[in-house]
Design a binder for these strands. Structure first.
Length: 576
RNA sequence: GCAUCGAUGGUCUAGUGGCAUGACUUUGGCCUUCCAAGCCAAUAGCCCGGGUUCAAUUCCCGGUCGAUGCACCA
């Protein structure tokens, strides 16, 4: 590798020129935070997503669902996004800068300023200095800026809707149906890949912070007391660099540990979190992310959501942006399900049977409705319900019905000790959530696989993409566009594409130029038809990374290329 | 969003108050028996809106996008 200028500029220049990433709707003036994936970009992104599907759907067995990107207000009130995503902000009247009003207040001693009303907050900060220009803020309006895009549903009704800020909520709101689909057994999980939207105040950093972005999320529902992953063995010995809270506080380097060690040492909260840390690492390496530029950083207590038991971010190092969070893996406990249960009134629990039947003695209060009915009339039912939960004294019990306190004498009910059969319990599952930012992974792959080298005085630009995600897998060239070489090449293209290989034909310009073109878009292999082909039906297969060639019979091509593409043989092994 | 700087064919770039450079790429042709060779030709551009001016890509104002700093940011 040779010294490069700014890698971001080089990568993005290539990405634009060759049709990976374009500014969106350029003809009308692009808007920050939105991008188009061009022909090769869309293909490659889809292949990255499909690789993700291999890991989560095929291997883990979590089915994919697809929910709307528009959701009603109720969903996001329950999820906490209506409140939690709304920042109370001010526009400084002196310098015109935006600032978080609650941050200003808290910096000067007010506690829990975020919970104050807009008006109260405006009063508090009136006499405080603006963080940008230091002028006393004075009288100004505090307004809420919500990161969610708002819309209305239907004409006239003005029913408020939001574009989803994450794909996860769709899985939570489908919980009951998913539970039934998975035949009422924990653990189970569902995944979703799709667009999410956040109206960022000031998106910078190109594709790193977008207003419309692609997420791949898995929500895995587990028993709160059983956080041992059933196939933990797969990754027990897998080593990953872990930057835990302790390492961060002491300014240390990440610890490279196996997942078994990490869990045993208490570095990672449980097997589930550790398992997905390792799986994420595995997935990223398969995608083309450089393992040397990847680490997992644990959320510090003050950045972790209050409900989360543990949270690790997969961070990828970028030459331009430094360490970038690309995946979050969190044990969210039962926060989400509890929130939706509370707001919707539906059940978000799973009935978990015991191994056998258990017998428990329960105290039951049986009211004598023959007395209570005539005496309390309309209130009798409410009183009976209240009695069921009451704790009776010697001569009676006081219950509260509609705010009215009523004393119920002991002779109007009977206290029975009963032995009941208990076959199981209702459990609200905990949620393990690996959440991937696809666009950031996509960019990281481009940056990490991008390479420049000098070959015979010329710069050779290569994307060293894994065959599994390269947008073109095999290029086919006739050495000359005559003497029937082109016809043979086109035949080969037909055969290969018929077998599902992403193949591209090119006969334009000198052969060297064609190799370079394919290098730039990361095509792993190139097949060239030359004059020998006409004699013995053999062609050359050229490897992108080493530029070495081997000869191979046309009829052996499909099988050999398939093995090269799926990694079951190495190109080196075929070179004599 | 504020401040500073920038924006010229697909890419990189020169330059200008009056026909807009050059290179690379791309396309067609010639040549060429394996790594961006050579020759001929073609395609294609002054970010958007307003103002000043006979005339604006150029000067002015506003916007958009990008870079940097500040602020904001799961």
């Amino acid at each position: 590798m040779i010294a490069m200028g700014d890698i971001y500029d080089n990568v993005m220049e290539l990405a634009r020129r060759r049709g990976f990433i374009w500014p969106s709707a350029e003809v009308y003036g692009a808007v920050a935070g939105f991008i188009d994936y061009g022909p090769l970009g869309a293909m490659m992104k889809r292949r990255v997503e499909n690789l993700w599907r291999d890991f989560y759907i095929i291997r883990e067995g979590y089915y994919e669902i697809e929910c709307p990107t528009v959701g009603t207000e109720a969903i996001y009130v329950a999820s906490g996004h209506v409140k939690g995503f709304a920042d109370k902000m001010i526009l400084c009247p002196h310098c015109g800068e935006y600032a978080r009003a609650d941050h200003i207040a808290e910096a000067h001693g007010s506690e829990n300023a975020a919970t104050l009303s807009k008006e109260a907050l405006a009063r508090v900060i009136q006499e405080l200095p603006c963080p940008a220009c230091e002028e006393q803020i004075g009288s100004t309006e505090v307004f809420e800026f919500n990161l969610m895009f708002e819309t209305t549903i239907g004409p006239g009704s003005q029913r408020k809707g939001y574009l989803r800020p994450e794909t996860a909520q769709g899985i939570f709101t489908d919980f009951a149906r998913l539970l039934r689909f998975y035949r009422n057994k924990l653990p189970f999980g569902a995944v979703q890949i799709g667009k999410s939207y956040r109206n960022e105040i000031s998106p910078r950093q190109g594709v790193i912070r977008l207003r419309e972005f692609s997420q791949a999320e898995a929500e895995i529902f587990v028993h709160p007391e059983e956080k041992e992953h059933p196939t933990f063995g797969t990754y027990a010995d897998y080593r990953v660099p872990l930057l835990g809270i302790e390492q961060q506080e002491k300014g240390r380097e990440p610890v490279v540990a196996t997942m078994r060690e990490a869990v045993d040492a208490g570095l990672v909260a449980n097997e589930y979190v550790a398992y997905y840390v390792a799986l994420t690492h595995d997935f990223m390496v398969h995608s083309g992310v450089d393992p040397a530029k990847m680490r997992f950083r644990q959320h510090l207590p003050d950045e972790r959501a209050h409900y989360a038991e543990d949270c690790w971010d997969a961070e990828i190092h970028s030459g331009r942006f430094g360490w970038v969070e690309t995946v979050g893996i969190a044990d969210r406990t039962d926060y989400d399900l509890r929130a939706h249960a509370g707001h919707s009134g539906d059940s978000f629990t799973v009935f978990v049977p015991y191994d056998g039947v258990r017998y428990e003695t329960r105290t039951r209060i049986v009211p004598d409705m023959g007395v209570l009915g005539p005496k309390y009339r309309g209130k009798a039912k409410a009183i009976a319900d209240a009695l069921a939960d009451a704790d009776p004294g010697e001569d009676g019990v006081e219950v509260t019905v509609d705010g009215e306190r009523i004393f119920i004498p002991a002779d109007t009910y009977e206290v029975r000790e009963e032995e009941v059969e208990v076959r199981g319990e209702e459990v609200m599952p905990h949620v393990i959530e690996p959440s991937y930012g696809i666009d950031r992974i996509f960019y990281s792959i481009l940056e990490h696989t991008y390479d420049e080298e000098i070959v015979e005085g010329e710069i050779r630009r290569v994307l060293r993409l894994p065959p599994g995600i390269a947008p073109v897998q095999v290029a086919v060239f006739p050495l000359m566009t005559r003497d029937g070489l082109d016809a043979i090449a086109r035949d080969i293209v037909q055969t290969l594409s018929g077998r599902g290989v992403l193949t591209q034909y090119d006969d334009n310009g000198a052969i060297g130029r064609r190799y370079r073109r394919q290098d730039e878009i990361g095509t792993p292999f190139a097949v060239t038809v030359d004059y020998e082909t006409k004699d013995d039906r053999t062609v050359t297969v050229r490897d992108r990374d080493t530029m070495q060639q081997i000869r191979c019979g046309i009829d052996d091509l499909p099988v050999m290329l398939a093995s090269l593409l799926d990694g079951s043989i190495e190109f080196n092994a075929l070179v004599q």
